[in-house]
């Protein structure tokens, strides 16, 4: 029975010391500890949130990067296509111009040739005429030195004339 009979002294001291303990610990231990724990948890969850946000941002950036890359590719293709077209058109133009120039040159060359030819032909003709005259002169001189033959010739010529 003594075992379960509380002594007033111990009850008194226990009440005082436990309430004091609780007051002091609440003020100087549990308060700061719980505060620090909560603060740390908040900062951890905040950091996690931020990490998630950063990841989302990264994903967004990644997709926009991809879009940029695609755009750039498309642009490049466009540019290449344009360049090719330009090149083709330049080449075609150049070809045409070259053709024109050569055609013109050919024409002028042909004209020149023709001119030269006519000139040459006329000169030849002149020369031939002169030569013929000379030849004729020489022949005549020779023929005229022989009276019979001259006569013969004159008669032949006349014969021809008559036939005509």
């Amino acid at each position: 029975m003594e075992l379960i009979t509380p002594q007033i002294g111990l009850l008194f001291w226990m009440t005082i010391s436990f309430l004091t303990l609780m007051f002091i610990l609440k003020r100087f231990a549990w308060g700061p500890i719980m505060g620090a724990l909560k603060e740390r948890e908040d900062s951890i969850s905040e950091a996690l949130d931020q990490a998630r946000l950063a990841k989302e941002e990264m994903d967004k950036l990644h997709s926009s990067n991809e879009k940029l890359l695609e755009d750039a590719k498309a642009e490049r293709n466009e540019m290449i296509k344009e360049a090719r077209e330009l090149k083709d058109s330049i080449v075609a133009e150049a070809k045409e111009k070259a053709k024109e120039v050569t055609d013109k040159e050919m024409i002028s060359a042909r004209e020149n040739i023709a001119r030269e030819k006519t000139a040459a032909v006329s000169e030849i003709r002149e020369q031939v005429a002169l030569l013929s005259i000379e030849i004729a002169e020489k022949i005549l001189k020779e023929q005229l030195s022989d009276g019979d033959k001259q006569k013969q010739r004159a008669e032949d010529m006349l014969k021809d004339l008559e036939l005509n």
Binding site: W13, S17, I24, P32
Partner: peptide, 23 residues
Amino acid sequence: VATLLFGVILLIIIFTSVAKSYV
């Protein structure tokens, strides 16, 4: 009672020092 006071002081020392290390 003596042990009680000793333990209470021990508890106060332990947990205020823990609180300090949190700071």
